[in-house]
Every structure is written in C-alpha cells, then in structure tokens.
C-alpha cells in the first residue's frame, strides 16, 4: 500500500517537473516566434506610395509648404526637365546611413537564361546590372544584394525598413559620388513582378533601384517568394 503511494507520488512529482520544463521551454519558443526578432524587416504600406512631389497643382495647399515651393523652385524652362544627371562611371561602393549599409567592392551582375538579374554569388557584396545605366546616369541603375545567407543577415537585411526621404550615396570609379533620395519602398511577388515599373524607362531622370528579397521563404525552392524594391532618384 505504502509502496504504491510512494511510487505514485514520485511519478507525480516527476510529471510535475516535466510539466514545468515543457511549459517554460514551449512558452519561450512561442514567445520568441511571435517577437519576430530574427525575420528581416518588410516595408509597410505607407512606404510603398510615391512621395508627394512639390510640383503638381493638384496637391492640397499646405500653409507651411506652399510659399517655399512657389518661390524656392525655378520654373521648368522646357518640357524636358530631367533633373541632375552625371556621366557614366561604374559604382564602387554604396552607403545607406539610415539602415547601416556601408559596402565596398560592388560586383558586376548579368542576366540568367530566363532574363532574370542574377544575384551576387558573395552574400557579403552588393552587385549592379552592368549592362544598364551606371548610378547617376539617365535611366534606372540597379543595385541588388542578398537579404540573408544560410546562416544570418546579409548586405540588404534591413532594406525593408528603409524610409522615404532617406539618402543613398554611391561612390563611383571616377571619384565622384552620386547622391539619391528614396521615393518609395515596396514589396512585390516574384511571380507577378512589375518588370516595367522597376527596370523600365524613367522618362529621363537618373534613378536608382535597390533590390533584395522579402516575404516568406520557400524551403522547396530555396528562395524567398517576394522582392523588396527601393526606388530613388538622383539629387546631386
């Protein structure tokens, strides 16, 4: 009788201890998965809308901005107001202070057989589409980099948290620096990628596209299902 009670009590206390361990470990894992500290940041909806440009008359009058925008901007003399433009020179390094990007040794990227832009083979490097315009020239210069490697964050890990108005500077081979300001940051499904929006004509402006991966990771293909694209234009 006493034996049974004893062993039953022992088993009971072991079960109680196991319960506590399971609760603690399980609870920790659930909490950690919800806190999402490991996942790369994704752009929110507010960042994907284009910035309001001061030029159009349709924009609502604002007491603080209308006097300065009326006098501060010189009227476009011709129909083709392209903004600043630079001569051709390949990029050598990229700085985005607001998200801690400071990367040197930008590699040349080409297209694969299906026409897709190939990613840098080195997770620690950014690459640029070498058959397109150089950053600062007319058209959309493209710089891409990985969001992560198999083991942790890569060059563009924080691209999804980039905000409108942030500055991006590209040092070029000729010693000059092309400075851009971010217009918007958006996330697109790779299956329905807006090729023309991202790589198409920029109506003469010198622009920059920063591309990395986003959304969910598909274990079967080994790729993320979305791309995060930051759109920026040259300011100086």
């Amino acid at each position: 009788m006493s034996d049974i009670t004893k062993s039953g009590g022992r088993r009971g206390s072991i079960a109680a201890a196991v319960t506590v361990v399971l609760l603690v470990v399980g609870g920790f894992l659930v909490a950690k998965s919800f806190s999402g500290t490991d996942a790369p940041p994704q752009p929110d909806a507010a960042q994907s809308a284009p910035s309001v440009t001061p030029a159009p008359s349709s924009s609502p009058p604002s007491p603080t901005s209308s006097p300065t925008s009326a006098t501060g901007k010189t009227a476009a003399p011709s129909t083709a107001d392209f903004g600043p433009i630079m001569g051709p020179s390949a990029p050598v390094s990229l700085k985005i202070p607001s998200i801690g990007v400071d990367t040197k040794g930008i590699v040349d990227l080409g297209l694969d057989k299906s026409g897709k832009l190939q990613a840098p083979t080195d997770f620690g490097r950014a690459g640029w589409y070498a058959n397109g315009p150089t950053p600062g020239e007319f058209g959309p210069a493209v710089i891409g980099a990985h969001v992560d490697s198999k083991s942790g964050p890569a060059v563009f890990y924080r691209l999804g948290s980039l905000k409108k108005g942030a500055t991006v500077s590209v040092a070029r081979k000729d010693g000059s620096t092309a400075r851009f300001v971010v217009d918007r940051v958006a996330r697109y499904s790779k299956a329905d990628f807006p090729t023309m929006t991202v790589y198409g004509d920029t109506k003469g402006r010198a622009e920059l596209r920063l591309i990395t991966c986003g959304g969910a990771f598909d274990q079967s293909t080994g790729h993320y299902v979305d791309n995060i694209v930051a759109f920026a234009h040259l300011t100086s």
């Binding site: 996942a39 297209l111 493209v142 090729t195 969910a216």
Partner: peptide, 18 residues
C-alpha cells in the same frame, strides 16, 4: 532589360524558421 525578380536570399533569417 532584366525581367522578373531577383533571388537574393538563402533564408537564414526567414520567417518559416519562426
């Protein structure tokens, strides 16, 4: 011109791990 997206991640920090 490039067509389609870019494969720029190996998943080391991805959500499915979470």
């Amino acid at each position: 011109a490039p067509a389609g997206g870019m494969d720029t991640g190996a998943g080391g920090t991805s959500t499915p791990n979470n």
